[in-house]
């Protein structure tokens, strides 16, 4: 590793420290929840290490706990994590077009909302080692947070675990708020999605739709409707990219 490469890695690692702390808190809550469903600390830790996705992992717990099918799980992950393909597509515009396939495949493992947001703010062309630096901070935070949550979570007082239950939702709100602030169409889309979920959960008849499919159905229909009614203009691509982080 040349000294310049090391410097960029170090900058990535430093920028990634706040992400590390945030991930630690959220994955701690994930570990607690997983352990509560009978998943061992080892299983939960490996699950976090190989998936590295907050929303997807929390969503998967309900399917795993209820013994759902692998196809349901795969479909659910596809829909919940589809946003990563947008981020991946977006970052494809930031890296050097000549960047090797191997390096693209390597940094892709770390594409989360936060790593994407920080990577996309780096001056183009994005050096992959910067994203590796971010991952070097974020991945241990996510993995060890899960381990400690799963191993020690049960000994925490019920009040503490109850409070930590909100961490993931605080993170979700923080992720979508920039788009909600800046774009009316995003505000409407989010409200429509929430309204549709409330209907599917509580409306007699509609609540017959299996819980595992509600999110999939709502996401596809609302996002497609929004795309048709309020397509994102071309010149918006730069600001849209940041908002998506």
């Amino acid at each position: 590793m040349t000294s310049k490469t090391f410097r960029i890695w170090k900058r990535g690692f430093r920028d990634g420290v706040p992400v590390l702390l945030g991930y630690f808190a959220v994955s701690f809550a994930f570990g607690i929840q997983a352990a509560g469903l009978g998943i061992t600390a080892l299983e939960a830790t490996i699950l976090s290490l190989v998936n590295l996705t907050s929303a997807g992992q929390f969503g998967a717990l309900s399917i795993i706990a209820s013994g759902g099918s692998c196809l349901t799980l795969a479909l659910q992950q596809l829909v919940i994590n589809l946003r990563y393909s947008l981020m991946s597509a977006s970052l494809s515009q930031n890296v050097n077009p000549k960047l090797s396939t191997t390096k693209r495949m390597g940094i892709a493992y770390g594409f989360t909302d936060e790593i994407f947001a920080l990577s996309s703010m780096y001056p183009k062309p994005l050096p992959p080692i910067y994203t590796v630096g971010l991952m070097s901070a974020a991945v241990p935070g996510w993995t060890f947070g899960t381990l400690l949550g799963a191993a020690l979570g049960q000994v925490l007082p019920g009040r503490v675990t109850s409070a930590l239950g909100l961490a993931i939702y605080g993170m979700f709100i923080a992720i979508i708020m920039p788009g909600i602030r800046e774009k009316r169409s995003v505000r409407f889309a989010v409200l429509a999605a929430m309204g549709a979920m409330i209907l599917l959960n509580y409306c007699p008849g509609l609540n017959l739709v299996p819980a595992n499919f509600r999110l999939i159905i709502v996401t596809v229909i609302v996002a497609f409707a929004a795309a048709v009614i309020a397509p994102v203009p071309d010149e918006d691509e730069e600001s849209g990219k940041e908002a998506a982080g």
Binding site: V186, A196, A226, A227, A230
Partner: peptide
């Protein structure tokens, strides 16, 4: 546009 709205809609829902 669809991909643009996906993260907001999913996380909101």
């Amino acid at each position: 546009s669809f991909l643009y709205y996906v993260p907001y809609v999913t996380l909101g829902a």
